[in-house]
């Protein structure tokens, strides 16, 4: 349980939300979304940490000789993080492709101009 990691991930999440809520350039908004995702990923990985643990991989020599396994970190959050990284990559890809097409159509990527649907 490392405090520094948690504080850093919360700072990243807050920074990302700040970028989404205040920046007017659409690419900066997408970057903000990405930063939120990275903050959440760091939080998940840090949750699985056990002090003094090693990587959660069984050694063949240990299994054959019947030695008790070492003290692991939790492998489940690592799996969750992998899934989340992939999802984050897909979100960024889709968002950026939408921004490219918005630029072609609206000739601007300022959020104040991309507002034909309102009211």
């Amino acid at each position: 349980m490392i405090i520094v990691n948690y504080i850093a991930s919360i700072i990243l999440i807050v920074l990302g939300l700040y970028a989404v809520c205040t920046k007017k350039n659409l690419i900066k908004v997408v970057l903000g979304l990405g930063i939120v995702d990275y903050g959440v990923n760091m939080l998940i990985v840090s949750l699985g940490f056990n002090d003094g643990g090693t990587a959660p991989i069984y050694q063949m020599s240990d299994l054959l000789n019947g030695v008790a396994p070492h003290f692991f970190v939790d492998p489940v959050p690592q799996a969750l993080t992998l899934t989340s990284i992939v999802i984050g990559a897909c979100v960024d890809a889709m968002a950026l492709s939408l921004v490219i097409m918005i630029y072609r159509k609206y000739k601007s990527i300022n959020a104040d101009d991309v507002r034909r649907l309102h009211g």
Partner: peptide
């Protein structure tokens, strides 16, 4: 308006998922 609706949906939906 389809592209901007899709973009807004993505931003807000992605925040919710996060």
């Amino acid at each position: 308006g389809t592209l901007e609706a899709g973009f807004k949906y993505l931003v807000i939906g992605s925040m919710g998922s996060s």
